[in-house]
Design a protein around this nucleic acid. Structure first.
Lengths: 245, 245
DNA sequence: CCAAAAGTGTTGGGAATACACCCATGC
DNA sequence: GCATGGGTGTATTCCCAACACTTTTGG
C-alpha cells in the first residue's frame, strides 16, 4: 500500500532543505444554472470515501505551475475554454486531510458561464452548493471558501463576467447575481450600479420579446472580461483623491 | 550540488500519485514604526542572491501544518508572542523561482504591534516597504501582495488590532492607520467610524497630556483581538436584512 | 386597448468626509 | 488666561435601495 510509508520514505534522503511532499490541485468549478449555484463534483469509485463526491483534482507535475496543473486536470472534465475565470483560493496542509497519507492541496476557484454546455464525464455531476451530497476529504469546507470568495467579489469587482453569457439582458444578469449571492437583487439598481461603475455597457442589439408581449430588452455585455476591482476600499481616505470624475 | 538533480531525483520513485516537492513557508512580518510600514528581512550570507535580503522562511516539517511551520520559523527571528495576527496569503509555484531547484512556497502575512520590541538576530533588519533594499527570489512581489492585503483589510475588518498597542489614543491609532494605508487619515472620522462599528471602545484611563499642555486623551482598546469582518460587502442586498439595529 | 416586461425619474436613508466649535490640561 | 491638543456637533456629499412612472412590445 501507499499509506504512511511514503510520507517517511522520501524523508531526509535527497533534500537538504527538508521533507518533500505530494501536492495536488483542487478546483471548485461553479456555475449558475436554473436559479441554482452549482459545483462540479466527481463521484469516487474507490476508497477512501467510496461513492462520496469530491472536487476535481490531480497531482502537480514535476515542473509545472499550480495554475497550469489546474487547467490541465480540468481539461479532462470540462472544455477548458469554458473556464472564464480561475484564481487561487488557499492551500490546505492538515496532515490528516487524506487518510492515505500526507498530501498538500492548493484549491482554485473556477467559474463557468451560465450558457456554456460543457460535456462532462459520466462519473461527474453538477450539484447545488446549498444541497451537497456527502463530500469527501475537506472538500466541503473548500467549497464554502469558494462560494464566500465569489460572493464577496461580486460586490466589489466585475467577476460577474465569468458567470454571465457574452451578451445578456438585465433580467438575466439579475437572476445570475441573485442566485450567486443567495438573496433577491433589484434589476433596476443592478443596471444603474454596474453601468455607473463601467462594468457593463449596452450593445446595439435587443433580445426578442416573449410571446406574452413586453418591451424587448436591450442586450448588455461586460466591458472587460478579466478581473478588475471596480469598487476599491476607500475607507478613511480623503475625498479629494476620489475615484472618478 | 543540489540543483536540478533533486527535482528529477524524487520523481516517479515513491509516489504513485505524482511527484513530490520541497515546500517552504515564507512570512511577511509587518509593523508600523516611526511613520513607516516596515517588513522584517534577513540578509543572505550565501548564494544565490548573496547579500540580498529575503523574507524569513524555512522548510515545512514532515507532519506539520503550514501555519505551525510559519510560527516555528518565526520564533527563531522574533518573539512569537509578539505576532498578533497570522494569515495565509498565497502559494507560489513558478519552477524557476529558486535557481537551486524547485521549491513551492506558501506565504503568510504576520503583523506585529507597534509597541513590541522583539529582539531580532544580527543578520535581520526592519526595512520600510516603500524603500526596500535588493530583495531575493520573488519576495518583492510577495511583500507587495502582503501590503495590499493589509490595506484592504484595514477598510473592512478590525485588523488594526494587530498593529496597535493594547491601549492607545486616537491620535496614535490615526498615525498607525495613516502609515499603513499610505495616505492621511482624519482622527475625528476614524474614531467615529470604528466606534460605530464596535471595533474600538474607550477605557477608563487617559493618557497624560504632554508638557505642551492639551487635554488628556482617552485611552481606547480594540473590542476584539481576533479578526472580525466588520463591514461586510452589502452591494445589491435588500436593506431589510440590514446590518445593525 | 390591455397586459407584460423593460427602463428611467425621483425620493429617502445611511454612511463617510470636512469643518466648526467646545472641553480639559500645562504653563 | 492662553496656547495646545482631544473630542463632539453639524453640514454636505455620495451611494444605493425603493418605488412610481414612462416606454415598447404582443395579442
Amino acid at each position: 500500500m501507499d499509506d504512511k510509508s511514503l510520507e517517511r520514505g522520501s524523508f531526509a534522503a535527497p533534500a537538504p532543505l527538508g521533507s518533500e511532499f505530494s501536492h495536488e490541485v483542487l478546483a471548485v468549478v461553479l456555475r449558475v444554472r436554473r436559479d441554482r449555484l452549482e459545483a462540479l463534483l466527481w463521484q469516487r469509485a474507490i476508497p477512501p470515501f467510496q461513492s462520496e463526491w469530491s472536487l476535481p483534482c490531480g497531482p502537480l507535475g514535476a515542473s509545472e505551475r499550480l495554475g497550469t496543473a489546474v487547467g490541465r486536470h480540468l481539461a479532462a472534465k470540462v472544455d477548458i475554454t469554458d473556464i472564464a475565470h480561475l484564481e487561487q483560493l488557499e492551500t490546505r496542509s492538515d496532515p490528516g486531510r487524506d487518510p492515505r497519507g500526507r498530501v498538500l492541496a492548493t484549491a482554485y476557484l473556477a467559474l463557468v458561464a451560465s450558457d456554456a454546455e460543457p460535456g462532462i464525464p459520466a462519473d461527474t455531476a453538477w450539484h447545488p452548493v446549498t444541497a451537497l451530497p456527502p463530500v469527501a476529504f475537506d472538500h466541503a469546507s473548500i467549497i464554502g471558501s469558494a462560494t464566500a470568495r465569489l460572493r464577496a467579489k461580486l460586490s466589489y469587482t466585475n467577476i460577474g463576467f465569468a458567470l454571465a453569457p457574452a451578451s445578456f439582458t438585465i433580467a438575466q444578469l439579475r437572476d445570475i447575481y441573485a442566485t450567486a449571492l443567495g438573496h433577491p437583487v433589484s434589476a433596476t439598481n443592478l443596471q444603474r450600479i454596474l453601468t455607473r461603475r463601467g462594468v457593463i455597457a449596452p450593445t446595439e442589439r435587443a433580445a426578442p420579446s416573449t410571446a406574452a408581449g413586453g418591451r424587448p430588452a436591450t442586450l448588455y455585455r461586460f466591458a472587460a472580461r478579466n478581473l478588475v476591482i471596480t469598487n476599491p476600499f476607500a475607507a478613511f481616505r480623503p475625498a479629494a483623491a476620489g475615484i472618478r470624475s
